[in-house]
Amino acid sequence: MSIDLQTVKKIASLSRISVTDAEAEAMVPELNNILGWVEQLGEVDVTGVQPMTAVIPNHQRLRDDAVTDGNVRDKVLANAPQAEHGFFAVPKVIE
C-alpha cells in the first residue's frame, strides 16, 4: 500500500495537525518509506495467534465506588490557556 498526497492530508486532518502543501508533500515519501518497511509484518504467519492483550499477565483491578477526588477546580483550571467563570473557554462552537 502506498499513500498519496491526498491521504497524507486526510491523515493530518484526522490527527488535527495543520500542514502546508509543501509539508504534506515532503511527508509522502517519508511516510511511505516507514509504512513500506513496517509492511514486512504481513509475511509473518500468525495463524491461530491471539493478539497480545496484556504485556505481563495481570488482572484488571476494580475500584470501590467512593467519592475520593474532585473539588479541585483551581487545580483543574490552573494551566488553562483561557478560563472564565470556572469554565474552560474555547472559540464558539456552532452545533
Binding site: D69, K75, V76
Partner: peptide, 8 residues
C-alpha cells in the same frame, strides 16, 4: 458548580 466534580 462547573468543573467542581472533576478530577485530574
Amino acid at each position: 458548580e462547573p468543573n467542581t466534580q472533576v478530577s485530574l
